[in-house]
Amino acid sequence: MPAPLNPFKHSLAQGQTLFGCWLGLADTLTTELVGTAGFDWLVIDGEHAPNDLRSITAQLQVLEASNSHAVVRVPLGETYLIKQVLDAGAQTVLVPMVDSADQARQLVRDVTYPPHGDRGVGYAVSRAGRFSMTADYGTTADAQICLLVQVESLRGLAALDDILKVEGVDGVFIGPADLAADMGHMGDLMHGEVQSAIMDALTRIAASGKAGGILSTNDIMTQAALAAGARFVAVGADVLLLSHAAQALATKWKNTLK
C-alpha cells in the first residue's frame, strides 16, 4: 500500500486556487470546528501558537475526518522538528524565515528519504506509516510531501529568484507581518512599500511556476494577492475570528445601556 495522495499538493500542481485559515488556539475542538467550515486548507501553527508535537498530532488526528487539508508550520527549519511532524502524519510542511537557496535546499533534504535526503527512516512505528500498515510508505512518501517555504525578510526577497530555482520546493509563502517589520513598517501591512514588495514577490513566484501563498485578513490585499497570482491564500485565523466576534458582541450589548 502506498502513501496516501496529498490533495493539497495535487491541487496546486493543477493550478487551482485554495483558500485557508490559520489555527492558533492549539485546541482540538476548535480545530475540528474550523475543519467543518469548508476551507481547503488549515495551518496548525507551531511558530506563534502554544503548540507542541502532541497537540499538533492531536489536531492532525481530528482533521483526518475533514475535507480541509492540514498544513503544519514548524517553529523553525530544523531537521529534527520536520522529521517529527512528518512522522506524526503531516504531508504538508510550512517553514518560516527562509532567507536563502541553501536553506531551501536543506529543507528539501529534510523532507526527503535517503539516499537523496536526510529524513530519518522510522515509518514502520509512526503514525505517518499507519504503524507499519502502509508497507510501501518509504518508497512512495517523498512524492506526496509538500514543502512550503516562507520568505518574510528583505534578505529573503533578495534571494527569492534563487529560492524559486530549488527543485523540491512546492510553494513560497510571503510572510507580510515580518516583512513589514523588516522594512521599517511594523504593524502597517498596507503601507505602499510593503504592498508593492508583496505583490512583486507573488508575481515572480507565479511566473516561476511555483505556487505563491499569503495570509491576509484585508479584502483589498487579498484581491490584489489573487490578481498577482497567489494560489494558496489564508483569509483568517481562529484567534481573530473568536476575538473579533466576542468584542463585537460585548460592545453591541454594552452600548444598549448608553
Rank of each mutant, 00 (worst) to 15 (best):
A3R: 04
P4V: 07
P4C: 11
P4G: 04
L5A: 04
N6A: 13
N6T: 03
N6P: 03
P7K: 07
K9W: 09
K9V: 08
H10E: 11
L12N: 12
A13W: 00
A13H: 03
A13C: 03
A13Q: 05
Q14E: 11
Q14C: 00
G15I: 00
T17Q: 10
L18R: 02
L18S: 09
L18H: 00
F19L: 13
F19R: 07
G20T: 09
G20I: 02
W22P: 02
L23Y: 01
G24E: 02
A26W: 01
A26K: 11
T28N: 01
L29W: 08
E32A: 13
L33G: 11
T36D: 13
T36R: 13
A37W: 11
G38Q: 10
G38H: 07
W41P: 00
W41N: 01
L42P: 08
L42D: 00
L42M: 15
L42I: 15
V43H: 01
V43F: 12
V43Y: 09
D45E: 15
E47Q: 15
H48L: 14
H48R: 10
H48P: 09
A49D: 10
P50Y: 12
P50E: 15
N51T: 06
D52S: 05
D52H: 09
L53N: 06
L53F: 15
R54T: 15
R54K: 11
R54Q: 14
S55W: 08
I56L: 08
A58W: 07
A58D: 15
A58N: 14
A58F: 08
Q59R: 06
L60C: 08
Q61C: 10
Q61V: 13
V62Y: 04
V62F: 04
V62Q: 04
L63F: 09
L63C: 13
E64P: 06
A65V: 14
S66N: 06
S66C: 11
H69W: 13
H69N: 14
V71F: 06
V71A: 01
V72N: 03
R73K: 12
V74T: 01
P75N: 10
L76D: 04
Y80R: 05
Y80F: 06
L81D: 12
L81M: 12
I82L: 06
I82D: 05
K83V: 02
K83P: 03
L86T: 02
L86D: 10
D87P: 00
A88V: 04
A88I: 07
A88R: 07
G89V: 01
Q91A: 13
Q91W: 05
T92H: 05
T92W: 09
T92K: 03
V93C: 09
L94Y: 09
L94D: 02
L94H: 06
L94V: 02
M97S: 10
V98W: 08
D99M: 08
S100T: 14
S100R: 05
A101H: 09
A101G: 12
A101K: 02
A101L: 09
D102T: 08
Q103D: 14
Q103N: 10
A104P: 10
A104M: 10
R105W: 01
Q106S: 15
L107K: 00
V108H: 01
V108M: 01
R109W: 02
D110M: 06
V111D: 12
T112M: 09
T112Y: 04
T112C: 14
P114K: 11
H116A: 15
G117N: 07
D118Y: 11
V121M: 13
